[in-house]
Simulated assay, not measured.
Amino acid sequence: MKEKPVVGIATDGAHSAKERLTRFRAVDLSSGKELFSKAIGNWTNNIGEFLGIVEAVRYVMEHPESPRTIYSDSITAITWYCNKQTASSRRCPALQKAEIFLKVMEARIKDIEVLHWDNRLWGEIPADFGNK
Rank of each mutant, 00 (worst) to 15 (best):
E106G: 00
V114G: 10
V60E: 09
P5N: 09
R90G: 06
I53M: 10
T79G: 11
G8K: 05
A10N: 02
R90V: 13
D12L: 06
F129D: 05
D111M: 06
V60T: 08
M61P: 10
P5E: 01
F101E: 11
K97N: 14
L95G: 05
R108D: 12
E55G: 03
P5M: 04
P126A: 04
I40V: 11
R25W: 01
K84C: 12
P126S: 06
K132H: 12
Y71V: 10
G32C: 03
S74I: 02
R90Y: 15
I100D: 14
R120L: 14
K33F: 07
G32I: 02
L35A: 08
K132P: 04
W80T: 00
K38E: 14
H15L: 00
A56G: 06
D12F: 07
I70H: 04
A77R: 07
I78N: 02
M61S: 13
A107F: 12
D111F: 08
I112G: 04
F101S: 12
K33G: 01
K110A: 13
R68H: 11
I53Y: 06
E62I: 01
R90K: 15
S31P: 00
K110D: 13
Y81N: 11
L115R: 14
V7I: 12
K38G: 05
I125L: 01
K4P: 00
V57R: 08
E62S: 14
D12M: 08
V27M: 07
D118H: 12
N42D: 14
K4Y: 01
L21K: 13
F50V: 04
Y71T: 09
M61K: 15
W43Y: 10
M61D: 12
L35P: 05
L115C: 02
E55C: 02
V7S: 03
R23F: 02
V114N: 09
M61Y: 11
L115T: 08
I75P: 01
A10K: 07
R120Q: 15
S88E: 13
